[in-house]
């Protein structure tokens, strides 16, 4: 059967479409011309300005703090949730599954406004703590799904066998269950961390004075129109993200090779 060339052409066109704005943005971060419409010569001055902008550093600090704590909370809660969902069936778990699944499909703006109203109704002051709670809440579902997908092929009778052979509960969990689901937990935690670092909409709603995170800072820079600085900042963030993905891919590949051998 002769294959049509159309899907192949479209795929590469879509990939070109994906990367075109990103590549232009990286190029413009080295462009001396302010508007980026033409090439005004190579420069690093935007990077220099960026490093002296103090509010960016404090926003980065807030982002890292929020993401780290939110990742710890959501990884713990999400892992327990996944184990419970896999192990037990029944009415409680049906409700549990709904509560874990629905936040994945609810638009971010609804999560944001509902949490804001919740905090306002309870007269809780907005700040870093509300931010951490909000981030942990939407990350729980992602961690739970990552661990659950790893548990899909896991046979619960192994745990019973271990206990029948005299192992304690904790020993069974530590020696059998955890090693099995560890890749899922790590993947879930990484996902939670990136989602938290990247989140703008929910953060914007629950942020208080002094809890500006990096995306909120970037947003206010976009509003104020300091384009070259955002270009430079974005390029650094893109470089870090791509580096992390490459490392993760590399580890994944070498692990797969080891498992094969």
């Amino acid at each position: 059967m002769r294959r049509s060339k159309f899907p192949a052409v479209l795929t590469w066109a879509v990939l070109f479409f994906f990367y075109l704005p990103i590549i232009l943005l990286v190029l413009n971060s080295f462009n001396a011309s302010r508007t980026g419409g033409s090439w005004g010569g190579f420069t690093l001055k935007w990077y220099a300005q960026l490093f002296s902008a103090r509010e960016i550093w404090s926003a980065l600090k807030n982002s890292l703090l929020v993401a780290t704590v939110a990742t710890c909370i959501s990884t713990l809660l999400g892992t327990c949730a996944a184990i419970a969902l896999h192990r037990y069936k029944g009415k409680i778990q049906n409700v549990h599954y709904c509560l874990v699944y629905v936040p994945l499909v609810v638009p971010e703006i609804l999560l944001g406004i509902s949490l804001l109203l919740f905090f306002v109704a309870l007269r809780i002051e907005l700040g870093i703590v509300t931010m951490i709670i909000a981030h942990a809440t939407f990350c729980v579902s992602y961690v739970a799904m990552a661990v659950l997908s790893r548990l899909q092929d896991f046979d619960n009778t192994i745990l019973e066998a271990s206990r029948d052979l005299g192992a304690s509960n904790w020993y069974t969990v530590r020696k059998i269950l955890l090693p099995e689901i560890l890749p899922g937990i790590v993947a879930g935690a990484l996902l939670a961390f990136t989602l938290s670092i990247d989140d703008f909409v929910i953060s914007f709603f629950v942020a208080g004075p002094g809890s500006t995170t990096l995306p909120i800072q970037i947003y206010s820079m976009i509003r104020r129109g300091s384009m070259p600085l955002i270009n430079a900042l974005s390029t650094i963030l893109l470089a870090i993200t791509f580096l992390i993905i490459l490392v993760v891919q590399f580890i994944g590949k070498s692990q797969a090779r080891q498992e094969k051998n």
């Binding site: 075109l20 508007t35 980026g36 990247d198 976009i222 974005s234």
Partner: peptide
């Protein structure tokens, strides 16, 4: 191809939107 498809999804949502803003800017390319 899968990696190339997923890669932009891992980068910041705001940055991708901003990138379009600078591409489509009245003085943009």
């Amino acid at each position: 191809l899968l990696l190339l498809t997923i890669l932009p999804f891992w980068t910041s949502f705001l940055i991708r939107i901003f990138a379009w803003k600078s591409v489509l800017h009245p003085d943009g390319m």
